[in-house]
Simulated scan of single mutants.
Amino acid sequence: MSRCRGWEALDVLEAAPDGPVAFCADLSPAGLLAAYRAGVYPFPASDEYARALNEVVFADQVQEGHIWLVGEESADPYAVSWWSPDPRPVLSVSGPHLSRSLARQLRNRLPWSTSLDRRFERVVRECRAGRTPPWLTEELIASLVRLHELGHAHSVEVWEDGNLVGGVFGVQVGSVFSMDSMFFHRSGASKVAVTDLAARFAQAGGVLLDAQRDSPHVRSLGGILVPREQYVRHLRRAPRDSLPMPTATLPVRRLAQPAGSR
C-alpha cells in the first residue's frame, strides 16, 4: 500500500493511464488547489453505495501500491477518487472555435453577452442539475466557492435578455485553466462560454485550457489529446499566482468575427 501525506509527494506520471490515480478524503479548498496543481481532479462518490463500490473495485490495486492513498490515515479515502488521465484532453487558448452556423446566428440575431465571475455558484449548481452521477457534492461546491472567493476558481456566464443561458467554470493554475463542467439552456451556449473563456484567458496571458475528460463535445471545440507528461510539464512551469482575466460584460458577437478582426 502506498500512502502520502499530501499531493506534492505524489508523482502522477507514475500512475496508470486510466482509472483513479489516488483516493483522498480531503476536499478542503487548500487540498483541492494542491491537487489541481499536481494535475489531478476529484470525482466524489454520490452516495454510500458508490463509496463502497470504490473500495470493492479498487482495494486490491491500492493494496498493491498501484493507486495511492493521500492524506491522514484516520480519514476514510474511498468517498473521493482522483483522476489524471493519460492522454489529457486540452485546448490551446487560440483553439476553441464556433461553428459557421452558430457564428452566423450570433452575428445576425442572437443578443447574447458574456461575463466573468458574476454568478459563480449559480453556474456550478446549474452544471450539477440533472447530472448523473451527481459528483458535484455540497462539500465540493463549498470548497469551489471558497476557491472562487480566493481568486483561484472562475466562471464565465452567457446571458440572453438578463437570463443565464449557459456557462463554464473551473480552477486556474497560473497559465493553465482546468475546466470542471459546463452547461447550456440554449443550443450553443456552452460552446460560447468556452470560447469566451479562452479569449479572456489569452488576454490575461493564459496558455492552455484543460478539458479533463475527452468527449465529442470537447473535440468539436478544437480539443486535442496530449501526453499526460506534457500537460504536467505545463503545470510545473505555470506561475503560482493567478492571472487576472478581464471582467467586463461583453457582447458575444465579437467571438463570431474572424480571428484577425476581433
Rank of each mutant, 00 (worst) to 15 (best):
S99D: 13
A248I: 05
V168R: 00
G31A: 12
G206A: 01
A15F: 10
D117R: 01
S115E: 02
G205Q: 01
L136M: 13
G167V: 02
R125N: 12
S2H: 15
D196C: 04
G260I: 03
L13N: 13
P42L: 05
D86T: 00
E121D: 15
L69D: 09
A198F: 01
F169Y: 15
S92C: 01
S220C: 03
L32F: 06
R122Q: 07
L116N: 06
L150I: 09
G162C: 13
P246Y: 03
G31C: 09
A248W: 08
A35F: 08
R118Y: 10
M1S: 15
D76Y: 14
D76M: 11
F169H: 11
T137C: 06
P44T: 02
S215P: 07
G260K: 11
V207R: 13
G222F: 03
L140Y: 08
R240T: 10
V21P: 05
V80P: 05
L250N: 06
R233V: 05
A199E: 05
P89E: 02
L225F: 04
E121W: 12
S28Y: 08
P96Y: 01
H217P: 00
D241R: 15
R3Y: 15
P133V: 14
P133F: 10
D214T: 10
A25H: 11
S28V: 02
M182S: 11
R37Y: 01
S115G: 04
